[in-house]
């Protein structure tokens, strides 16, 4: 059973003057452990697809399954629960809370799951070390570089050991080398922890790193192929 499956999913936004068909009949399945890129030009529907998979939005039509369960009609509270426990998010703009330190930003994920303060702290420090931020635990986001901030965001997504991490253009705000490092880190986590990754990008250099490349255009999947192994995959 795939971890995530979209069956002929449509999403049309109605809040403007004219309806905007953002996603038009997307079908795809993601297996556990995949490291997949959702590629396509700006406006092609990448963010919308990620939001639908993450339960942040509902499809206008079609079915969406998470771990075999139809989540397209799930009430808000249950989708929140799903995100809380099983899905990690990473954003282009890092989205850290400016008044919290690195470790506190990571702890936020765990606080929602009802961990004790000591467990929260221990687990967060561990994962921060894992993403290469040892020694920077008490810095606030403003005292970190973009790459470091994104590492905190990755730690925040990973600390609760989610089944899938949805990353919306995680390298778009980073220079090339830093972006490559972030991708290395994600690939490494995918390999060592088995976490499924689905990340969007419009950067050909980033697409190259994925082991599966789903190409979107105008809300449709125009190509979906597995990339031949290039060293970092298994």
């Amino acid at each position: 059973m795939p971890l995530v499956e979209l069956r002929d999913v449509y999403k049309t936004f109605q809040n403007g003057v004219a309806p905007v068909p953002a996603v038009q009949g997307v079908s795809l399945a993601l297996e556990r452990g995949e490291f997949a890129a959702l590629a396509g030009p700006s406006g092609s529907g990448k963010t919308t697809v990620l939001n639908l998979i993450g339960g942040l939005d509902r499809p206008t039509e079609g079915r969406l399954f998470f771990d075999g369960r139809d989540i397209s009609e799930l009430p808000e509270t249950e989708r929140t629960q799903l995100r809380r426990r099983r899905i990690g998010f990473i954003f282009q703009t890092f989205s850290l809370i400016p008044v919290l330190s690195s470790v506190e930003n990571v702890e936020l994920s765990l606080a929602l799951l009802g961990f004790t303060t000591t467990d929260m702290r221990r687990m967060s420090l561990e994962i921060l070390e894992h993403v290469g931020l040892k020694g920077l635990e008490n810095r606030r986001p403003a005292q970190l570089s973009g790459g470091q901030q994104q590492r905190v965001a990755i730690a925040r997504a990973l600390v609760k050991d989610p089944e899938i991490v949805l990353a919306d253009e995680p390298t778009a705000n980073l220079d090339h080398d830093t972006g490559a490092e972030i991708l290395d880190l994600m690939a490494d986590l995918n390999r060592t922890q088995g976490t499924t990754f689905l990340f969007s990008t419009h950067d050909p250099k980033v697409m190259e790193r994925a082991r599966r490349l789903i190409l979107l255009d105008d809300g449709r999947v125009v190509s979906d192929r597995t990339v031949p192994s290039r060293g970092e995959g298994t």
Binding site: T80, Q81, R83, R84, R85, R156
Partner: peptide, 16 residues
């Protein structure tokens, strides 16, 4: 607002 969206993505309930 954007931070609220992020918190919702992390799984924070709207009542929280």
């Amino acid at each position: 607002t954007k931070e609220v969206g992020m918190l919702r993505a992390l799984g924070m309930r709207s009542t929280e």
